[in-house]
Design a protein around this nucleic acid. Structure first.
Lengths: 215, 215, 215, 215
DNA sequence: AATGAATGAGTATTCATTCAT
DNA sequence: GATGAATGAATACTCATTCAT
């Protein structure tokens, strides 16, 4: 009895089906938004029967949740191999920041539909999901804050309310991602976006008098 | 002719009803979110009959739209009397920015429920409303951009991609408002928030070498 | 504003609607059984919209429950004015029993559909309803038992396990009602049924030797 | 020729599967009732695949039918070896009755789950099954009736509507079985139940004057 | 023969909208 | 104009049944 083989093959097929549903859901959510999407839209897009959906997910919320976790995994993977040595100089501080920023930009852009969807609708599902999403935002903010604290402690950054600035930075990233996806920066590449953001965050907007008046 | 008087009184009562429905809608939307709110929730909160809703609004979308316009009006009013004389110095540039920022912070905070709701859910209603909301965001960004352009032109601000920075600034404002409302800044007052934001936007995070090297 | 009048008229109409739904439910349940009956069958029979059902009842179980209570009320009403003076002689004991029996037979027969339905399906709805129904059966059995106990105490009845006999009597009543409704007693009237039951319960089946051997 | 042996073994295994499914069905039906039982409940209990069910039974109704027939067979077996010599005296009449009663009590109690299930739900499956069940009840009633007729003819029993009394007796048996299973007779053994039933059926409840008046 | 993933017909239920009073 | 009971279209979800492996 090749039941072992059978079992494995079945499992693989099941997993494939699940992924195909996730892809369809992502596509349809991106097109119509979470709330205007029916289960039937998803299964039609996936080309499977109505009942098949319920074999893999409890309801619309759960497939959305699964998409959310998928994105989190990808984000985590992107930062997996990131150097963790604390910066030794102002220059290293800045380059580490730029690196983190660039990685975030990349993972967001590589998962554009998913990320855009989750950023836009994640907090409109229900109270619990709202908390989940805000928890993730907060985690990022806290990561940023501890990095800022380090910079302040070592004198690479000026004294500041790092809690406030960290949240501002996260908001800035999200806002720019959103604008970028909305096509409001025609002709701008990601590197420019990153460079401008980092420049703003580090140097601010103010004209630098030193450089301008060398004499 | 009492019919004239009667007519006016009726009209007033009608207007009062409309406002009461708008208030209820705002309250209920804020509590449950747009998508989880039923017409019956709104009329129950307002203490009027189900049919009465339809005498004043076509559907849920329309009352949401009306709330959106109400907020826009209040924002506009806040900026009505703002001085429009272009800044003549770097110092004026900075203070004008802070003033604009503070006004925005005030109007958002005075309409906390409404603003929070619209920022969170405005783009999840439908495609058309999404465009409307993004149009408003864009307007703010453009306003900010033209102000930045002016700063750059006069040498108050360093050269930069003002289109990008403007959107970043708008995102930053929204993110901080959101965090503030979510209670993530316990013990922080609005002025501190504004000051930190302006400091970040103008000076960046970097330690100021001038101060460090006085000689 | 005749809102008072309006309210009353509305309430009356609502009550009428509710009764019409109960009647339809009773009719359809009787025809198809509880489990094979759809909400749509009931509303079609009542000639009202699908949503109207849910304005009056939570679900199919609840309308069944309401029918059950309706029957209980009618049974209670039938026994409302029953004489409660304890029997003073064997003859009174027997006639009081016959009277109770007859009343039960009447109320069951007057609510044939309802009673038949509830006796047949009442215990197949769910565990909780089963307990409810059995509770009612038990109440009747206990009533019968206390009556029997009295008869035994006064010497009108022979010593016996009145708990067992009481339940047997209740079962006997139900079985005969069921057979009667199923048309298994063609040409028999209710009085005959009652008389035979009482004779069986009181005298048993055995030939009476005294009477048979007068000489 | 090993194919012969193989065939037989296969057949045995098939039969074992069938029985295991029947047992599971009986168990699950008894626990949840027919209508609340899903095919999946049965196959899960039996530890076989969903498809296997359909290799042995057409649908839920058919497995219920099979259980019903199983019970009938057991009942028939119980009465197989029963003496068929007509009673020659009042005493034999009574003892034959008690014997039949006791056998019925035994077979019902030995198949408690099955019997309880079929008595409770048998008539709620569909119209056809209802007729089948009522046919079986009727058969029992007719058997009882012909026995009663014989008793009346020979003077062992008083003249009575034997059709009515027979059905009453059957109802009484069922009611007591039901009460017994429901635990409403704590501490009572089956023999007591049988004895009380026979006493009620033969002698009724009335106090026996003979004993009271010895002279 | 056994399996269990896939299927979709069948239903309960919700809720925006209407309209008689 | 206000009301709220009535409505039924729209949808989520279940579960018996099939069938490829």
């Amino acid at each position: 009895m090749p039941s072992e083989l059978r079992k494995q093959r079945d499992q693989e097929r099941t997993e494939k089906r699940r992924l195909s549903l996730l892809e369809s859901a992502s596509r349809v959510f991106a097109r119509q938004g979470y709330h205007r999407t029916l289960i039937s839209d998803i299964v039609n897009d996936a080309g499977v029967g109505q009942g098949t959906f319920y074999r893999h997910f409890k309801d619309k919320r759960q497939i959305f949740e699964a998409l959310f976790e998928l994105l989190l995994q990808k984000v985590a993977a992107q930062f997996q191999d990131m150097e963790s040595r604390p910066p030794q100089s102002a220059e290293e501080f800045r380059s580490a920041s730029r690196d983190a920023y660039r990685r975030m930009a990349q993972v967001l852009d590589q998962n554009r539909d998913l990320a855009s969807l989750l950023l836009r609708e994640g907090r409109t599902i229900d109270a619990e999901f709202q908390r989940t999403v805000e928890g993730v935002f907060l985690e990022f903010a806290q990561l940023a804050q501890s990095f800022l604290d380090l910079g302040v402690a070592r004198g690479f950054a000026r004294p500041m309310r790092t809690d406030i600035v960290a949240q501002a930075i996260v908001g800035l990233v999200i806002a720019l991602a959103d604008s970028w996806w909305a096509g409001r920066f025609p002709g701008v590449d990601i590197d420019t976006l990153v460079d401008e953001s980092v420049a703003l965050a580090f140097d601010g907007m103010i004209a630098i008098p030193n450089t301008a008046q060398p004499s």
